[in-house]
Computed example of a mutant assay.
Amino acid sequence: MTTDTVAPTAPAPTEYAHEHAPRLPLAERVPEFYRAMLQLERAAAKDVDPTLYHLIKIRASQVNHCAFCLDMHTKDALAEGETVERIVQLSAWRESRHFYTERELAALALTESVTLLTDGFVPDEVYAQAAAHFDETELARVIGAIVVINSWNRIAVSTRMTPGHYTPRSA
Rank of each mutant, 00 (worst) to 15 (best):
M1L: 11
T2P: 15
T3H: 13
T3E: 15
V6H: 13
A7G: 11
P8H: 04
T9A: 13
T9I: 15
A10K: 14
E15Q: 15
Y16N: 04
H18I: 07
E19W: 10
H20G: 07
P22F: 02
P22C: 00
R23P: 03
L26P: 05
A27Q: 12
A27F: 10
E28P: 04
R29D: 10
R29G: 09
P31K: 04
E32Y: 09
E32M: 13
F33D: 07
F33V: 12
F33R: 09
Y34P: 12
R35L: 13
A36Y: 11
M37H: 06
Q39H: 09
L40H: 12
R42S: 08
A44I: 06
A44G: 11
K46N: 10
V48D: 05
D49E: 12
P50N: 03
P50Q: 02
H54R: 05
H54C: 05
I56H: 01
I56A: 05
R59Y: 01
S61W: 01
C66T: 03
C66F: 04
F68K: 05
F68L: 05
F68Q: 01
F68I: 02
L70N: 02
D71I: 04
A77Q: 00
A79L: 03
E80I: 14
G81V: 10
T83I: 04
T83H: 04
E85I: 01
R86Q: 00
I87W: 03
Q89P: 10
A92N: 13
S96Q: 12
E102R: 15
E102D: 14
R103E: 06
L105W: 00
A109K: 09
T111V: 05
V114Q: 01
L117C: 06
L117V: 07
D119Q: 15
G120Q: 07
G120C: 10
F121W: 10
V122M: 07
E125P: 12
Y127C: 04
A128Q: 13
A128K: 11
A130T: 06
A131M: 07
A131H: 08
F134C: 06
D135F: 06
D135W: 09
L139G: 02
R141S: 13
I143G: 03
G144I: 06
I146M: 08
N150D: 07
N150C: 08
W152I: 05
N153A: 04
N153W: 03
R154H: 06
A156C: 10
A156T: 07
S158L: 09
T159N: 04
R160G: 10
R160C: 04
M161K: 11
M161L: 14
H165M: 10
H165G: 12
Y166H: 14
T167S: 12
T167N: 09
P168D: 01
P168Q: 05
R169S: 11
R169I: 11
S170Y: 11
S170E: 15
S170H: 15
A171S: 14
